[in-house]
Nucleic acid binder design. Structure first.
Lengths: 191, 191
DNA sequence: CTCACTAGAGACGCATCGTCTCTTATGACT
DNA sequence: AGTCATAAGAGACGATGCGTCTCTAGTGAG
């Protein structure tokens, strides 16, 4: 070993090695030793930075695919905005695959709550945009309805092993979300 | 060792040992060796019957808490029927705890689809009962809406680490499911 | 009473964990 | 330029659990 890396350069190498390892052997069979070997470094270097597999992998995943909240759609219509968000979510699931998702869910307890708050924020923004356009009143909607499209999609991701097609997304929006939004508006009138 | 067990007696001992082990150390730290030791038998006896940890645990769980479909509520009203099913689901989740649920989901790919079909059948029965009473027409409802209460609850179970209270169940039924059922009926009229 | 079957027990080789140790490259500070 | 604390690279280490294999001796069927 002639050159010895440090700081960010080293960390990037490790995260990239972890990602490659993740893609080639999956989560269940990813080992700290494997990552260290691929990154041409020692295990101790990994354990100095992450307490376990799960934390390392989460960092690696975040490092490679950003957050759904990174860019919020604004198409001028609530329906297509929501659909766009759901599509972004499925894209991320496709990148990871179900095995990694389940593995992380089982081993990283802190991950799930974060999913919730992130999407919550995004959906709230979408609804505020719609409200500004006069499509609806945000206050009409129970929180449960606001997070519902993402919740249903997430459920689908966790319970099926295959990547999710376009149809379920459309169904969620058209058969569940939008009817509820409409019902909420008309019930407000009859109050 | 004086007495040597066989057949069902032996199998029951093992399943009970597995359950006890599950309750005392959780799923992640349950080992085949631990179960064998507690059941006072050898590992080979386990491997003769189950291919791995996940299958053994699934059998043990089924052996101790039956299926949601074991008894289908019939209270005379759709709302309370659905609530009763959701309550039975949360009861089972309480018995298991989130850690076991996640562990099994990650390691036993065949488990998830089964959840889906079981609840699907139960909900369909509830709706047929309601239809017989004249509460609604089953054909009005998209499949997505039929499975929706269970789907949402399952989502909640998988994403929160604590047992689920009564309120979310009521919210799911009153803020999401029933409004959709009603909307579906009235939209049918205006078709 | 005999015998095929398999329970009970644990040794085995392998993989991986997380810790520890050792040498030596590196960059910050004189 | 020279010194030095720091941490990188490498791998040995004991522990643990996997899944397989082997051996013996209960046990129920006939």
């Amino acid at each position: 070993m002639t050159v010895r890396r440090r700081g960010a350069a080293l960390e990037d190498s490790i995260l990239e090695a972890a990602w490659t390892e993740l893609m080639s052997v999956g989560y269940a069979r990813l080992t700290m030793e494997g990552v260290a070997a691929r990154a041409q470094t020692g295990k101790q270097v990994l354990y100095r930075r992450w307490r376990n597999r799960a934390e390392l992998v989460i960092t690696a995943v975040r490092h490679h695919i950003g957050s759904v909240a990174d860019q919020i759609p604004d198409t001028g219509e609530l329906r297509s905005d929501v659909l766009a968000v759901l599509q972004r979510m499925t894209q991320r699931q496709r990148d990871l695959g179900p095995e990694i998702l389940h593995g992380l869910m089982a081993e990283a307890p802190d991950l799930a709550p974060e999913f919730l708050t992130v999407i919550d924020g995004v959906m709230t923004t979408l609804l505020e945009q719609a409200e500004k356009r006069g499509e609806l009143k945000v206050t009409d909607l129970p929180v449960r309805v606001v997070t519902l499209p993402a919740d249903l999609l997430r459920h689908e991701m966790l319970l099926t092993r295959h990547p999710i097609a376009e149809k379920p997304l459309v169904d969620i929006v058209d058969q569940v979300f939008l009817p509820l939004v409409r019902a909420s508006i008309s019930s407000k009138v009859s109050d």
